[in-house]
Design a protein around this nucleic acid. Structure first.
Length: 594
RNA sequence: UGCCUCGUAGUGUAAUGGUAGCACCAGAGAUUCUGGAUCUCUUUGUCAAGGUUCGAAUCCUUGCGAGGCAGCCA
C-alpha cells in the first residue's frame, strides 16, 4: 500500500476558535475539552463530518481532548448498531490527524462523586488516545442516569423543579399561553415523593413529568418550565431495563458536558434558543467546577443531496439505495465506500469554514477538493469502460511490446510501469465518431490519434455489424511514432487511452453520479421524486493487467476518465471498482453547446 | 404571531473603524502524449435607508429578507 501524500492545511480560523484562543490566553481555561455528541439513531453523514472536524480540530490545534459521546436519552430511537458505526466513522475521519485528541473512557466506568463541601459534584475523565489493554468505549449520556437523577433531586429540593401531572397536550397549551401549571407550587416533599415513584415505575408513560421551575412568561419557550424527565417504560440499548424515566436532551446534555469537564460545547444553530436553559441548569445546581459554555454554528447543507437522518433512513428503508453505506449516500460510510478519503473530507471541512449563516454549499466544492487531492496522489492506469475493438493491421499478430507508462505526472517519484501493446486493442467507444462534430479531435475515419504511451494510429476502415453498429476499427500505426522513441515528435491533436485486448482484465466498474437531479431536492415537493435514475451505471471495464493487484487503500485515476477505488465487494479474480469522481470534462461541456 | 440568530460576487468564505480579498462555479486564452493538471486573464458583491466618524462591510436606529425555536425528539 502506498502512502498517500497528505498536506494538512494551515490551522483554520473562525469565531469559535477565536473564543477558544482567547479563553486560553486569558487563563479562563488551561486545557481545552470539546466533545462530539451524536444521538445513536442513524449513521453519521458529511454534516457530522463537519462537526467532527470542528470539535476534533479545536482539540487538536489547542492540545486538548474531544470526547466521543452517545447522546442516548431516548430509548425508542437508539440502537447499538448505530453506536458502533458512529465510533468507527469518527475514528476513520480523525485517523492520521487528530487521534491523539480522541477522548474515550474505560468500559463500564461511571462518574465519580467529588468532594466539594455540600455541593453535588460528579466527574468522569477521558482517557486520551487510549492504546492500553483496558477495554474502552465512547462516553454515553446514559452512563450518567444515576447522577442526573441525583441532580434532579437537588433541583427539586432547591425549589427549582417540580413534578407535573398535566398531559402532553395540556403542557403544550399552557406553555404556549404562558400559563403556570396547577402543580407548579406543590410542595417539595410531594414532588420528591412523586419523582421517586416515577422512577420506581408506579406510573404509566406520560402520567407525570419533572419540570424545571423557571419562568412561564419568558419570551423564550425553552424557559417556560421545560420538561426535564419523562416516563418511558422502554428498554434502553445501553442501560437495559434499569430505568423507566429518561432525562430530556437539555438536562442530560448540559450535565454530561459538565461531568466530562467540557470547556467548549459546540453545537448547531437550532440549539441557540436552548442556551439560556443550558446556562440555567448549570447555574441552578451551584456546581463547583468550571462551567462549560455553548457555542453554535451553521450545519452543513449540500446541493444535490439530502442530509436529514429521517430522509436518509427513508432512502435506505424504501430500498432506493443499497444501505447506509451506498456510495451515493452522503453518509460517512457511503462516502468512504465511494472512495473518498478522510483527508479529502477534512480538507473540504476546512474549505467551507464555520459561520452562523445557514448556507447551501455547492457539492462542486466537495468534488473539487477530492480531485485536488487525488490529482496529487492517484497512480494513473489505463482502462476502457465501454470498449470498441481496434486492430492494428500493420502490427504483427502475436507480437507484444512492453511500453513505459508514467504512474503520476504530478509526482515523478511515483515512477513508471510497463503496459503491453499488441495487434488487437480496445479503445473507448466515445473516442471514435464516424461523423464527428466540430472541434472533435479524437479518432474518425481517415483520422489520426495518438495512443497514449504508444503509437499514432490512423483509422483506415470501419467494420459494422448487420444492424449498422461499429464493431471494429482497422487501423495502421505509424511505427516511427512510438512514445519515447527518437522519432516520436510528430504531433497529433488527440491522445486517447487503450488496452491490449489479449492482456486486458475485466473488472466491474460502478459508475456513480449524483443521487438527485436538482440542487435542492428537499426544497419543495417529495424529495424522492427528484432521484437521479442514472445515479448508478454498471459496466464491465477492460483494464490494463497491472490492475489485477489493485490495492483497496489506493485511489486510481483511469486516465481521461475518473478516479476509482476498490469496492469491498471486490475479490481476487473479480475486481469491482467504484467511480469516486470523474475527471473534469471540458469536452462534454463543449459538446453540449452544439 | 412571539422570541433568537444571521444578511459581503452565482455559491462558500475573509477583512475585528483604515486599499473589499480568497476559493469554487462560469467565461476567454496559453500550454499539454490525459479535452486531466498547470498558467494568464475576465464578469459579478457589502440587503435598504438614515445616523455616528476624517474615514463604516464593521458601530447605532429603523425597515426588509432569510433561517431557527414554540416535542414528554435530539
Amino acid at each position: 500500500m502506498t502512502t498517500p501524500i497528505v498536506n494538512e492545511p494551515a490551522a483554520p480560523s473562525d469565531f469559535i476558535r477565536d473564543v477558544v484562543a482567547d479563553d486560553l490566553r486569558s487563563g479562563k481555561h488551561t486545557q481545552i475539552h470539546t466533545r462530539f455528541p451524536p444521538e445513536p439513531n442513524g449513521y453519521l453523514h458529511i454534516g457530522h463530518a463537519k462537526a467532527i472536524c470542528l470539535n476534533f480540530g479545536i482539540a487538536h490545534e489547542f492540545g486538548g481532548v474531544c470526547n466521543v459521546r452517545m447522546d442516548d436519552t431516548n430509548p425508542a430511537k437508539e440502537e447499538v448498531e448505530y453506536v458502533d458505526s458512529i465510533l468507527a466513522d469518527a475514528k476513520w475521519l480523525i485517523n492520521g490527524w487528530a487521534e491523539e485528541s480522541l477522548g474515550l473512557k474505560p468500559a463500564g466506568k461511571t462518574p465519580e462523586k467529588q468532594l466539594a463541601g455540600d455541593k453535588l459534584d460528579f466527574q468522569l475523565s477521558a482517557i486520551r488516545n487510549p492504546k492500553s489493554e483496558i477495554p474502552v468505549e465512547p462516553f454515553h449520556a446514559s452512563d450518567y442516569f444515576d447522577q442526573f437523577y441525583e441532580y434532579a433531586l437537588q433541583l427539586v429540593r432547591k425549589g427549582k423543579a417540580y413534578v407535573c401531572d398535566m398531559t402532553p397536550e395540556e403542557t403544550d397549551e399552557y406553555r404556549r399561553l404562558g400559563k403556570e401549571s396547577p402543580f407548579r407550587n406543590r410542595s417539595t416533599e410531594e414532588s420528591l415523593d412523586l419523582l421517586a415513584r416515577m422512577k420506581a415505575g408506579e406510573f404509566p408513560d406520560g402520567a407525570h413529568t419533572l419540570r424545571a421551575k423557571i419562568d412561564m412568561s419568558s419570551p423564550n419557550m425553552w424557559l417556560r418550565d421545560p420538561v426535564l424527565y419523562r416516563i418511558r417504560h422502554a428498554e434502553h440499548h445501553h442501560t437495559g431495563k434499569k430505568w423507566c424515566i429518561y432525562p430530556m436532551y437539555d438536562f442530560a446534555h448540559t450535565l454530561s458536558d459538565y461531568i466530562e469537564g467540557i470547556t467548549h460545547s459546540v453545537c448547531t444553530l437550532e440549539f441557540e434558543v436552548h442556551r439560556p436553559l443550558y446556562d440555567w441548569i448549570l447555574a441552578s445546581l451551584d456546581l463547583p467546577r468550571a462551567l462549560p459554555h455553548q457555542y453554535e454554528f451553521a450545519r452543513l447543507n449540500l446541493t444535490y443531496t439530502v442530509m436529514s437522518k429521517r430522509k436518509l433512513m427513508q432512502l435506505v428503508n424504501d430500498g432506493l439505495v443499497n444501505g447506509w453505506d451506498d456510495p451515493r449516500m452522503p453518509t460517512i460510510s457511503g462516502l468512504r465506500r465511494r472512495g473518498m478519503t478522510a483527508s479529502a473530507l477534512r480538507a473540504f471541512a476546512y474549505n467551507i469554514g464555520i459561520t452562523k449563516y445557514p448556507s447551501m454549499t455547492d457539492v462542486a466544492v466537495l468534488e473539487h477538493t477530492v480531485r485536488e487531492e487525488f490529482n496529487r496522489t492517484a497512480p494513473r492506469r489505463l482502462a476502457v469502460l465501454r470498449p470498441i475493438k481496434v486492430v492494428i493491421t500493420n502490427y504483427p499478430d502475436g507480437q507484444v511490446e512492453e511500453l513505459d507508462a508514467v504512474n503520476n505526472p504530478e509526482n515523478p517519484s511515483a515512477g513508471s510501469r510497463k503496459i503491453p501493446f499488441s495487434h488487437e486493442l480496445f479503445i473507448e467507444s466515445a473516442d471514435f465518431m464516424e461523423t464527428p462534430p466540430p472541434k472533435y479531435f479524437r479518432l474518425r475515419p481517415g483520422g489520426e490519434v495518438r495512443l497514449k504511451y504508444a503509437y499514432i494510429i490512423r483509422c483506415d476502415e470501419v467494420v459494422k455489424d448487420e444492424a449498422g453498429n461499429v464493431i471494429e476499427l482497422r487501423c495502421t500505426a505509424d511505427l516511427e511514432s512510438k512514445s519515447g522513441g527518437p522519432t516520436s515528435n510528430r504531433k497529433v491533436k488527440g491522445t486517447i487511452h487503450w488496452v491490449s485486448a489479449a492482456h486486458a482484465i475485466d473488472a466491474e466498474a460502478r459508475l456513480y453520479d449524483r443521487l438527485f437531479t436538482v440542487p435542492e431536492p428537499d426544497a419543495d415537493g417529495d424529495f424522492k421524486s427528484f432521484l437521479n435514475p442514472n445515479s448508478l451505471d454498471v459496466v464491465t471495464a477492460k483494464c490494463e493487467p497491472s490492475l489485477k493487484n489493485a490495492d483497496p487503500g489506493v485511489r486510481y485515476q483511469f486516465e481521461r476518465l475518473a478516479y476509482f477505488a476498490i469496492d469491498p465487494d471486490s475479490q481476487p479474480g473479480k475486481l469491482v471498482f467504484n467511480r469516486t469522481i470523474t475527471l473534469k470534462d471540458t469536452w462534454a461541456k463543449e459538446a453540449k453547446k452544439s
